[in-house]
Amino acid sequence: MDIAENAALVVVDVQKGFEELGFWGERNNPEADDNIAALIDVWQASGRPVVFVRHDSSGPRSPLRTGYQGNDFKEYVQERRGRGPGAELLVTKTVNSAFLGTPDLGAWLTAQGITQIVVAGIQTNMCAETTARMGGNLGYDVLFAYDATYTFGLEGPFGWRRSAEELAQASAVSLHGGGFARVVTTKEIVGAAGG
């Protein structure tokens, strides 16, 4: 796997509100936060650009709502912001895709000459997957850092319920099998990026 010298790491919604398990339920992949931190460290050490994405929920009960402490980035992310020599961007959004936030992520990537992105963050099957899908649709070479994401169990139609791990795996299969992104591990990305 080749990682471009200017590949952008897109860190999606790594916010304190996702620690409120009473709201979200059971999560998967307890190693995700360590893997996200490792990716940020490698990107910053190599001078590659990092995009930090924050979900500003308009839901009055959402742990990610604007003005609530859960809207803040997790400490390990906040501590790393502004520390790398490479370009850095903050995107805020109210929907699933980072490409539909402010400022315009696609326009920024184009202006920087970036054609490859690495997606990590929360939730695997929600904003991380939607960002990866849209990136693939827009023609970017998308790497999805599967073990640098996590999600929560969910109930859907017909009484169907899927665990966090089942949903994460389904996202990986859809993204990779559907050609939206290459689903890879943090170790593979770090090795290819020179970490």
Results as ranks from 00 to 15, higher is better:
3 I>Q: 07
5 E>N: 09
9 L>N: 07
12 V>A: 07
13 D>Y: 06
14 V>Q: 13
15 Q>M: 05
16 K>E: 08
17 G>W: 03
19 E>S: 10
23 F>D: 01
27 R>A: 14
28 N>M: 01
29 N>P: 01
31 E>A: 15
33 D>Y: 12
39 L>R: 05
42 V>S: 10
43 W>S: 05
44 Q>E: 09
44 Q>W: 08
47 G>K: 13
49 P>V: 00
49 P>N: 04
49 P>Q: 03
50 V>C: 05
55 H>M: 03
57 S>G: 08
57 S>P: 07
58 S>W: 04
59 G>H: 07
60 P>L: 08
63 P>T: 04
66 T>P: 00
69 Q>N: 04
75 E>N: 05
77 V>I: 15
77 V>Q: 09
78 Q>I: 00
80 R>P: 07
82 G>H: 14
86 G>D: 06
87 A>F: 03
88 E>V: 05
92 T>G: 11
97 S>H: 07
99 F>A: 08
101 G>S: 12
102 T>E: 15
103 P>W: 13
103 P>I: 10
105 L>E: 03
107 A>C: 01
108 W>P: 00
108 W>C: 02
110 T>P: 00
110 T>E: 12
110 T>H: 06
111 A>E: 15
116 Q>Y: 09
119 V>M: 06
122 I>W: 12
124 T>V: 11
126 M>H: 14
126 M>W: 12
127 C>S: 15
135 G>K: 13
137 N>D: 15
140 Y>C: 09
145 A>Y: 11
145 A>C: 12
145 A>E: 11
145 A>G: 12
149 T>Q: 11
152 F>I: 05
157 P>N: 09
158 F>Y: 14
159 G>E: 09
160 W>K: 13
161 R>N: 09
164 A>T: 03
164 A>H: 02
166 E>L: 01
166 E>D: 04
167 L>S: 00
170 A>E: 07
171 S>L: 02
172 A>H: 14
174 S>Y: 04
178 G>V: 07
179 G>R: 08
179 G>S: 09
182 R>D: 14
183 V>K: 06
183 V>C: 12
184 V>S: 08
184 V>G: 01
185 T>V: 05
188 E>P: 00
189 I>Q: 06
191 G>E: 14
193 A>S: 10
